[in-house]
Design a protein around this nucleic acid. Structure first.
Length: 315
DNA sequence: AACGCGTGGCC
DNA sequence: TGGCCAAGCGT
């Protein structure tokens, strides 16, 4: 492998980005800081293709932070739809409230201020400051971590958790110029998403293939086996099914309907809109204990609200 | 510092 | 088919 100067890496990856980047709505001329922030919340652990329709409807409904802050949290949860991790909707709603309350209704333009908002961590703060405001920030997401691990580190995959050494490496690779640093961050992220993917990377299309330390080393296997995410039988699965019922319910659902298997259920027919999600919930054959525990967890997390009339999304 | 947290597409 | 994976965060 012929060592390639960092400046040339910048030029080649950004050049590739200019030619090949996807035309995503949060990058276009209609981009606002709020749109960037909404997209970053939705993209946390969620693929772009699933975010696109929800993002468009969300911004149409709530064009600015004050618009979202003015409605009940339950509205945010309902319009989050099936994006997953609904606590993100709750945090985005709370962040909108904090922006109205403490920042004059404008999305903060520094990473330090952004970090104080609920649901905004190291990555999202840096990403919003960079992509919404053109700031020079060390943006490190899972795509960037993987590209750096291969291109510079010679490893198949980054470590299981983000390390301080990785942050230093990312900072050392960042172009000095503000505008160029923004392009670099976006370009490396896009390279990781489209070419330098976790499985079956498209190395033949990579603009920096000849500079890749991992390829030069003969593409060694990962140092560890990634731990799978448990799903079947977990509280997480049950919580998801309960949220599905509550999202589609036109009225509060009484606790017994949620935690009792239909064969034991001697109640009148629940509202039509609830039937399908309810069947999905009870097909899980979760124990009453697990159903109760999961429901209590949702209430404790503020994702559901319990009143004498029954359980519903929070108001 | 591990762990819990939704959802669905992909090979 | 089912495990893996996706622009993380909070505790």
């Amino acid at each position: 492998m012929i060592p390639v100067p960092t400046a040339q890496l910048h030029r080649r990856v950004i050049g590739w980005f200019d030619a090949e980047a996807r035309d995503l709505p949060w990058r276009g001329p209609s981009r606002t800081p709020w749109a960037v922030m909404v997209s970053e919340f939705m993209l946390q652990q969620t693929p772009v293709v699933r975010v696109l329709p929800v993002f468009a409807a969300w911004l149409d409904r709530w064009p600015g932070p004050a618009d979202l802050a003015a409605v009940p949290a339950g509205d945010a949860l309902r319009h989050w739809g099936r994006l997953g991790y609904p606590r993100r909707a709750l945090r985005l709603h709370a962040a909108a409230g904090a922006i109205v309350e403490h920042h004059g209704g404008r999305v903060p333009n520094t990473a330090a201020e952004l970090l104080t908002l609920p649901g905004v961590g190291t990555y999202t703060a840096a990403a919003v400051a960079a992509f919404a405001y053109g700031k020079r920030e060390t943006v490190v997401d899972t795509n960037i971590r993987r590209v750096h691990a291969r291109l510079v580190g010679g490893d198949a995959l980054p470590a299981p958790a983000l390390t301080a050494a990785e942050m230093r490496r990312a900072a050392s690779l960042l172009p000095a110029d503000d505008a160029e640093s923004v392009q670099w961050n976006a370009a490396v992220m896009e390279l990781g998403a489209l070419i330098c993917t976790a499985r079956a990377p498209k190395c033949s299309q990579c603009p920096v293939l000849d500079a890749c330390a991992w390829v030069a080393a003969g593409r060694p296997e990962p140092h560890y086996v990634p731990r799978g995410q448990a799903w079947a039988g977990t509280d997480r699965q049950v919580r998801g099914a309960i949220m599905g019922v509550l999202r589609d319910a036109a009225a509060p659902v009484i606790r017994e309907v949620l935690v009792t298997n239909p064969v034991d259920l001697a109640l009148g027919s629940p509202p039509e809109t609830v039937v399908t999600p309810l069947l999905k919930l009870h097909r899980l054959n979760a124990s009453r204990e697990q159903l109760e525990r999961s429901l209590d967890g949702l209430v404790a997390d503020g994702l559901a609200s319990e009143a004498p009339a029954g359980i519903s999304l929070p108001s």
